[in-house]
Design a binder for these strands. Structure first.
Lengths: 213, 213
DNA sequence: TAGATTGTTAATCGATTAACAATC
DNA sequence: TAGATTGTTAATCGATTAACAATC
């Protein structure tokens, strides 16, 4: 129904639409979305046409309907129970990240091996020891895990999560984690990668501009 | 020389190669890299062939040479001075992120508007007020900025950064920031987007497996 | 009706991949 | 030499985009 390329843009449309809605708009045109996201307007219409006829010719798209439809497609229009494994600097930051809650992701548990952290609070949650992982995941029907442990620990923790039935892992540890078996989907996020892409883009835009540097 | 698709994979190769090197390997084959990154081996060879003949037929690629070449291409084989604007939870986490230093990015300054934060230490740095931004950027030859301020403040801070000559901004604020003029390159990182992609991947892999849910 | 914008087609463009000769 | 793996071609596949009829 949707190509991979389209799927990867749906979250971007969603964010932009929510921004427009908050700013008071109720309708939007393909050209507006395209400009704001640096895309082509044909591309936007083609992406959105996968939902069936949603727009009105001559008028545009109803923002509210678009948001609901995209959310339905992306997240099944339901909330997901998420746990955080590894409450270091990054883990703490991620737990406070507004965007997650907004998009239907509920942080229901936080885990760390460090005995000094266990028992402390993280927002409204109490940090639990890693031993509790298995019981908690089963009793709370947790499906997704955010992994922010040190690189060295990441593969073994990922394996443990898979064994107990976690279906998706968002890995922030600076190491590529591949699924031990294939019952779990792992998305690796590398923050340094983004900075490298930025540096490359800056270098090439300078070259284009004719600077010698 | 390199397609966009190839460029976006170079940082992934780099990370994988550094991991292999740390594990004691000195050579690697296209098939090995492909498997570890979920790519096709032809694709890996094609990507790497842009550097000229680097591999040895029948043997593979020298890891050390590959790393150096990729680093050269991506970052100009030099270090970049980076500042952090917005020292909240996320900013603090980013400042401690190992991956940045490893890839040649040096955090040279940290800024926040909050008077209670100004003067405090962040690692080896002292947090400065936003007023110091312009002077600091010019005297320290800062080129890149990591933006982790609240969404509402992001566009105006981005504009300020552009005016004073910053050439690249990595934006973590949960809002799409587009360059006011075109003298700056902005890369928007949305952490919730990754979680949404994961959720979608989980949903579709379930459907494929025939679960009704 | 006149103006605007969608939905969709067809053409173009670019990226992936299988295959294999070259060669270490 | 025999085995392995690169570098590169050619074919395939998929994604983007211009264009325009449909229609609000």
């Amino acid at each position: 129904m949707f190509s991979d390329a389209t799927i990867s843009r749906l979250p971007l449309y969603l964010r932009e639409l929510q921004q427009l809605q908050r700013a008071g708009s109720s309708r939007v045109q393909s050209g507006v979305l395209a400009r704001r996201l640096g895309l082509n307007d044909s591309q936007v219409r083609r992406d959105l046409s996968g939902f069936g006829p949603l727009g009105q010719r001559g008028v545009g798209y109803e923002i509210r309907a678009l948001i609901e439809t995209i959310q339905n497609t992306l997240g099944g229009n339901r909330s997901w129970n998420v746990i955080l494994v590894g409450v270091g600097n990054l883990g703490t930051a991620l737990s406070g990240y507004r965007g997650f809650e907004q998009q239907g992701f509920r942080l229901v548990g936080a885990f760390d091996t460090d005995p000094r952290k266990v028992g402390k609070r993280l927002g409204t949650l109490e940090i639990q020891p890693l031993d509790h992982l298995e019981d908690f995941i089963q009793s709370e029907e947790v499906e997704l895990a955010i992994l922010s442990v040190p690189a060295a620990a990441a593969p073994s923790v990922a394996q443990r999560l898979e064994l107990v039935g976690i279906t998706g892992i968002l890995n922030f540890a600076p190491i590529t984690v591949t699924p031990p078996q294939s019952s779990v989907t792992i998305v690796n996020v590398d923050l340094a990668v983004e900075l490298q892409r930025l540096a490359y883009a800056v270098l090439t835009s300078k070259k284009e501009a004719g600077e010698t540097d």
